[in-house]
Simulated assay, not measured.
Amino acid sequence: MRAIILSVLLGLVLYIQAQVTIGSGIPPDENALLDLKEDDNGNSTKGLLLPRVQLSDIDSPSPLTEHKEGMFVYNIGENGFVGRGVYYNTGEKWEKVSSLFTNWFYMPSVVFDTSLTGEGFTKNLYELYRDQFENPMMKSSDAPPSIPHMPAANDLYYYITVYDTDVFEIISLSDSGILVYNIKQAVSAYSLINIIFVLK
């Protein structure tokens, strides 16, 4: 009888140790290996703090000794190859977690009137992008009415990678996507400004 009771108790201890709650003495959800919660309703006043590392390159496992699929970290360093943010490891490289958005994309087509010269023209690149994404002219039958997962203006970096310097003089490009420019030379055919948005 004593052996049966000890076996049952040992089995119960092993079961409890297989699932863990951190933050309270409340048993974990039956589907969770690790459950972070402070009360019965799952409410909390604290968050999960990921390991903070300095990644040097998405192809390098450093500071890990090797790539490990499923590893999550928060990169606190910032260089030309890797920005700050949450990254996961694919087993071959680091990928940034970008809130379901692609990491970068070209700005939708926008018309710049170059028929007359002038100074101090402005375009709100973010508003032009948002208006097109919220009001597409056509969509497939099962698509939502507007394009989902739209970041805010300050969630983006704005780049102009190339433009016709004979026609345009770029004065400024703000952190919220306001472009100020001059038209140096009127053209009747076409000109070029290549604009790219990158998620922070």
Rank of each mutant, 00 (worst) to 15 (best):
V180D: 03
V187I: 04
I196N: 05
Y163P: 12
I22G: 00
V8S: 05
G25Q: 12
I5F: 05
G91R: 12
L128F: 05
L48M: 13
T122M: 00
L128V: 09
M138C: 04
A153M: 09
V86E: 00
T90H: 06
E95P: 06
T165G: 10
K200T: 00
N135S: 04
D35K: 01
M138A: 15
N103S: 14
P63M: 06
I5M: 07
M1V: 11
Y126G: 08
W94D: 05
L125V: 00
Y190T: 14
P148V: 01
I5G: 03
L55K: 06
V198R: 04
R2K: 14
R52W: 09
E119V: 13
S140H: 11
V82D: 11
L34S: 08
F101S: 03
G70D: 03
I16S: 08
V86H: 03
N194F: 06
S188H: 01
L36A: 12
L33C: 11
E134W: 06
G42W: 00
F112I: 04
D155S: 14
N124I: 10
W104I: 05
K46P: 05
L33G: 12
E92C: 01
T165P: 02
I160P: 10
I195N: 01
L125K: 04
R84N: 15
L49F: 14
P51D: 05
Y126V: 09
D142Q: 10
Q17V: 12
Y158I: 07
I195P: 00
F105T: 07
T45M: 02
P61C: 05
G77V: 04
S44Q: 12
V86F: 07
G118L: 08
L9H: 00
